[in-house]
Amino acid sequence: MKRKHRRLAILTACAVGVGSAAALAFSALSSDMVYYLSPSQIAAKHPSVRRTFRLGGLVEAGSLKHETVNGQPVAVFKVTDLKGDVTVTYKGILPDLFREGQGVVTMGHMRPNGTFLATEVLAKHDANYMPKDVEQALIASGKWHPSEGAPPPAATWDMLNPRSLAKPKPVGT
């Protein structure tokens, strides 16, 4: 066995060792590496009122209400993962991307009444990128509305002419 072959063998053995050690460590850690909990995880885990954690999910369509408490604006909305939902109360400025149907990550704690009091609301961006005229065309044609959540896959509208898309489909086709 040449020396360089021995070095290659040692290196391969080290790679297999370090790789499997890391894989084991991460599979053990994976449940603790979660950045936020979803509403159904909260329903299963019942986090304590004193524990501060992040709650993530979609802002449920039609659930956003702006209220005034002691003269201060308060946003109340439901965060859903389509399996469960949690009502969130937040006092402060919402990010630009915040809207119904949008993914959000909020930090705060549960209140005894089962609602979530948020101290921070961050908007999540999905993986979709779409020009404004396509959005307008999709809304005008009734194919999709922002409150429904993420836009339809790009492949379905990528090559369409926005003007032809905007025309409502004749009934019955």
Partner: peptide, 11 residues
Amino acid sequence: TWWNTLHQPAS
């Protein structure tokens, strides 16, 4: 893809 992150998945 493995964890819930604020960063969105790949486009």
